[in-house]
Design a protein around this nucleic acid. Structure first.
Length: 418
RNA sequence: CGGGGAUUGGCGCAGUUGGUAGCGCGCGCGGCUGGGGGCCGCGAGGUCGUGGGUUCAAAUCCCGCAUCCCCGACCA
């Protein structure tokens, strides 16, 4: 869909933020009608919000495809047996499980992660060194029974995540891909406008490696505390900050700056640990069975939307980066006269035909309301058609980030927007 | 899970020493307006989160529970 008429959009904006949200991202997203709160930590994505989600996904998808990722979708219902293999069915080991039962009593889990499930699936398809390397990813709703949800859509019990898994022949092949993923992730954050504020961060690596890598975006509403090394463009998560890790990374404490940050990505090297647990092997050139080298890579899609809402907003509302805004242009007609409406309709059709996504405010409401909504929704460009602009046969253009307006002919407007 | 706060029309809120609810926004109708959420009139909409208790009488006092928010703990 290239555009939409606000007169037909069922959602609407609010002047006041809901009392039960203090997180800025939730306040703005609810006021603008992007999301609807269902319960603590659970949000529905309404038409405009879904557009933002889909645009973020598209950026991620392009970068994952660029490193040969293959997209798929796993299931939310998962068999207990799969998780018993690694001991992670146990509530004492994984405390965020939502579990249920089929009518015949069979126990099932609701996917809080898809690691074990993906490996089970892959075992049906991979068997030879000729099949490797491979990496696969999905966009999935993860369900986690968190003790406490917080910060609006930044930490929920149900959230959208891109998770990717790499299978390699050996450590060298794995390392190569791992590094390529770090680069791809940084391209994602850069394209989303977070490049300058996002740091590769050394964090707890679990049992398999000394560190895992997190991608942390500087954000007051974030849950993590990181220590930045500006000149080296790296950071250390508070959880692993210590003399040993400082020495390992070759940095000194005095060069680090403490910051609040939100984890927008996390990647892990599993080595062969998990493939050994799950007996995930391939046949090498000599006909011997070898364990697959595994990596796991996540990006929090809905959390990214929250972080961006937190960082890109002002007193009037959201200010989406163009690449993920639900539309590029907010087109407002300021009169219900035939002439103005006709011209606006025409411009809407023209922009849309030229591939520009437009939110067309064709409602019969006052000017102030239209402008307030244009600002609240955070659409990058606002175009006005009114008696005034028509008298000079021009259109008014204003950027969301600027107070200046300019009058442009149809041609130059089109040139500016394309 | 520990601590703190909250719950009254769709949303934001007020409601005094207990006497069966009111304002703003929004919504519907009519009119005036028409470049930053405008104005006037009329109207619809609430078993005051829930279950008990005290009382002649409870939104209001007491007890339990639920939900939501915040801090902490937790967090592949």
């Amino acid at each position: 869909m290239a555009g939409m008429r606000l007169s037909k959009l069922f959602t609407r904006t609010r002047k006041e933020a809901p009392a039960d949200e203090t997180a800025k991202n939730a306040q703005l997203l609810i006021r603008a009608g992007y999301v609807n709160k269902e319960m603590a930590g659970v949000y529905a994505y309404l038409p405009l919000g879904l557009m933002v989600i889909e645009k973020i996904k598209q950026v991620v998808r392009e970068e994952m495809n660029a490193i040969d990722g293959q997209e798929l979708v796993m299931s939310s219902l998962q068999p207990k047996e799969t998780w018993e293999i690694t001991g992670r069915w146990d509530d004492k080991v994984v405390d965020v499980w939502f579990k249920s039962k089929l009518q015949d009593g069979t126990e099932v889990g609701l996917g809080w992660s898809h690691e074990e499930a993906i490996i089970q699936m892959l075992k049906q398809h991979l068997s030879s060194y000729k099949d490797l390397p491979i990496n696969i990813y999905q966009f999935q709703t993860k369900l986690r029974n968190e003790l406490r949800a917080k910060s609006g859509i930044m930490r929920g019990r149900e959230f959208i995540m891109k998770d990717m898994y790499s299978c390699s022949l050996d450590e060298r092949q794995h390392e190569k891909f791992y590094q390529a993923t770090i680069d791809a992730y940084m391209r994602v954050y850069k394209r989303l406008g977070l490049g300058n504020d996002t740091y590769v961060t050394f964090a707890s690596g679990g049992a398999f490696t000394q560190f895992s890598h997190e991608f942390q975006t500087i954000c007051e509403a974030g849950e993590d505390t990181i220590y930045l090394h500006e000149s080296k463009k790296l950071a250390i998560n508070e959880e692993v900050l210590g003399d040993d890790s400082l020495a390992e990374l070759g940095v000194e404490r005095k060069d680090l700056v403490q910051m609040k940050a939100a984890e927008v990505g996390n990647i892990f090297n599993f080595g062969t640990h998990k493939s050994k647990q799950m007996d995930f092997t391939f046949t090498d050139q000599k006909g011997h069975q070898q364990f697959v080298y595994l990596g796991s890579y996540g990006i929090g899609i809905s959390r990214l939307m929250g972080v961006i809402a937190e960082k890109f907003s002002d007193e009037k509302g959201l200010v989406w980066p163009e690449i993920i805004a639900p539309a590029k242009v907010y087109l407002a007609s300021l009169s219900d006269s035939k002439e103005v409406l006709g011209a606006a309709d025409e411009l809407y059709a023209l922009l849309t035909k030229n591939g520009i996504r437009v939110i067309y405010d064709d409602r019969d409401i006052r000017t102030g309301e239209k402008f307030a909504d244009a600002d609240l929704l955070g659409i990058p460009y606002r175009v006005v058609v009114s008696e005034k602009t028509m008298s000079s046969k021009r259109f008014e253009l204003k950027k969301r980030t600027s107070d200046q307006t300019e009058l442009l002919s149809q041609d130059s407007l089109l040139k500016t927007l394309i």
